[in-house]
């Protein structure tokens, strides 16, 4: 009997690069401050209550990233930002550079050139990110844990 020849995999047998698991050396993930301006308490009873918005940060661990400035996006979301809530959140996290009144909707080209409010908004809303901490509802006091930048909004069965 002849010895079995060694198995040579045909070229299509190799793993496709997209199939390989990614290396675990990734920077810690995080949540944008912009997102917290949209979040309310998940409880139905809290939704109608004014103090359920915004959620308040507790023990927040922040991180600064640098992202490309997208003036069109800022212009698009600015009308939908709740300014008093953003001021509350910014003050809680120690940012004081924002004006007390919501700035007028700036033209995209204007914001592109301007270094002022648009950039500051970009820095706070998109570049500042939360890694760990808690979000607390002002009405019911429910704490939503943020772990690795993912907030846990699962409610226990008795609260649904």
């Amino acid at each position: 009997m002849t010895a079995k020849p060694p198995f040579i995999p045909p070229p299509h047998f190799t793993l496709h690069p997209t199939n390989l698991p990614l290396p675990p050396t990734t920077p810690p993930p995080k949540m944008k401050i912009l997102t917290t301006n949209y979040l309310t308490c998940a409880l139905r009873a809290c939704k109608s209550h004014p103090s359920s918005f915004p959620l308040h940060f507790r023990d927040a661990e922040l991180q600064q990233d640098s992202l490309p400035f997208n003036a069109a996006f800022i212009a698009n979301i600015l009308p939908r930002i709740d300014w008093p809530a953003l001021l509350t959140t910014a003050t809680e996290l120690g940012f004081t550079g924002l004006p007390a009144e919501k700035p007028d909707l700036l033209a995209t080209a204007e914001m592109e050139a301007d270094e002022g409010v648009g950039r500051e908004l970009h820095r706070i809303l998109l570049e500042t990110q939360v890694v760990e901490g808690k979000l607390v509802c002002g009405n019911c006091g429910h704490e939503y844990a943020i772990h690795q930048g993912i907030a846990n909004f699962l409610l226990p069965g008795h609260l649904v």
Binding site: T26, N37, Y38, F53, I150, A151, L154
Partner: peptide, 18 residues
């Protein structure tokens, strides 16, 4: 390393956004 913010939530419990 997806670009979006992620939430652990049950959509059957509602959508916790303003």
């Amino acid at each position: 390393e997806t670009a979006g913010d992620l939430f652990l939530a049950d959509i059957g419990q509602g959508v916790p956004f303003r």
